[in-house]
Design a protein around this nucleic acid. Structure first.
Length: 336
DNA sequence: AATCTGCACAACCGCAAATTT
DNA sequence: CAAATTTGCGGTTGTGCAGAT
């Protein structure tokens, strides 16, 4: 379906373009079960006709349970502007300071309006920033760059959720003790440098702190669970049977359990969170209730994360797909 | 009412870094 | 230690939608 530039690789038989709800569900179900130890092997094992890269991107940018969607808050926008002034186009680093936001999302927001706004607001200050924005991101704050890049090393790095900088890195749930903290220090310094946007502001701009762990926990923990290596060697999954049985399984569990999920965030609650998240997701995908198969190809806008999916009606930020706090509202809108 | 233009979003590409063998 | 493989990042592009003309 032709979004994005034409594919470079002629991988015959692989789907490209927008993801269908079925594909989403497959990916979700697989990662829920097994994590994503190996992106390259994942699509095969999950029965997806996608390349690993595509799966990874989809997961990171749209399917992760800890994503918050909807409009950026003023605080978030301010944070992005400030961080961009410091970091340049280091979207992943910036995303690390905005839990629930992805680098891709931030990049889009920046390119669409923040860039304009920033240049209007501070024509003078724009020097370092303007250059950074326009393609020379190397100049700003070298120490930070190196610092944060080292910080990116942890597993779930990418989209940023795996490495929240300013917010709670939740040492409790983290096995990595002081080294990580040490690596975080420079970032914390940067946050402190943001005079107008103190760490507090950054934190408030991202009111779902520990949930960041949920994605990483969902993924890395699954990997850490130890089953992944084996899974990697599994023969191809019978898509029409196994995968859907997995999904059915999840659905069944969800339907049995209480759908309401407390807005708490600890390891013990992540599973619950994932459950409601999956349930919510299924609803959005139109897979809730009737069997998945009964859900034909939904239009692009019926899919999660697709245009129109954002609930702009709320004015404020509305987390469409994955946040407990917005869930009730969201359900209400979905239940029609 | 129809058409045009700009904006926003999602996805892909290519490269670089990190990790594994 | 080197080569190969995998992952992650940043840039770019195409499509759809909304608003303006």
């Amino acid at each position: 379906m032709g979004r994005g530039r034409a594919p470079c690789c002629a991988k015959v038989g692989l789907n490209r373009g927008s993801w269908t709800p079925q594909e989403d569900m497959r990916l979700i179900a697989y990662i829920q079960k097994h994590g994503h130890a190996n992106w390259r092997a994942l699509p095969r094992q999950a029965g997806l006709l996608r390349c690993g890269k595509s799966c990874r991107l989809r997961w990171i940018n749209y399917l992760r349970p800890d994503l918050r969607r909807g409009n950026f808050t003023a605080e978030e926008e301010a944070t992005v502007i400030k961080l961009h002034a410091l970091l340049g186009n280091k979207w992943s680093k910036i995303a690390a300071c905005l839990p629930g936001r992805t680098d891709n999302e931030i990049k889009n927001v920046w390119n669409t309006h923040l860039k304009k706004r920033a240049s209007e607001q501070k024509p003078g200050v724009g020097e370092s920033k303007g250059e950074a924005a326009d393609g020379d991101p190397d100049t700003p704050v070298p120490s930070l760059s190196s610092a944060s890049s080292s910080m990116t090393s942890s597993e779930g790095s990418n989209g940023g959720a795996g490495e929240q900088c300013g917010t709670s890195n939740d040492p409790e749930t983290m096995d990595v003790p002081s080294p990580l903290e040490l690596e975080l220090e420079p970032v914390m310094d940067i946050l402190d440098m943001l005079a107008d946007a103190p760490t507090e502001a950054l934190a408030t701009a991202a009111p779902m702190p520990t949930s960041s762990c949920s994605s990483s926990s969902l993924t890395t923990c699954a990997g850490g669970g130890g089953g992944v290596e084996e899974l990697l060697e599994l023969p191809d999954i019978d898509m029409d049977a196994d995968i859907w049985s997995i999904i059915d399984d999840d659905i069944a569990r969800l339907q049995q359990g209480d759908a309401t999920v407390p807005c708490t965030t600890k390891a013990s609650q992540e599973e619950e969170g994932n459950e409601w998240w999956l349930q919510d997701l299924e609803k959005e995908l139109g897979l809730w209730g009737p069997t998945e198969e009964s859900q034909p190809q939904a239009g692009p806008h019926d899919q999660i994360g697709y245009p129109g999916q954002l609930s702009e009606t709320e004015g404020d930020m509305v987390m469409v797909s994955s946040h407990p706090q917005s869930r009730s509202d969201h359900e209400a809108s979905n239940s029609e």
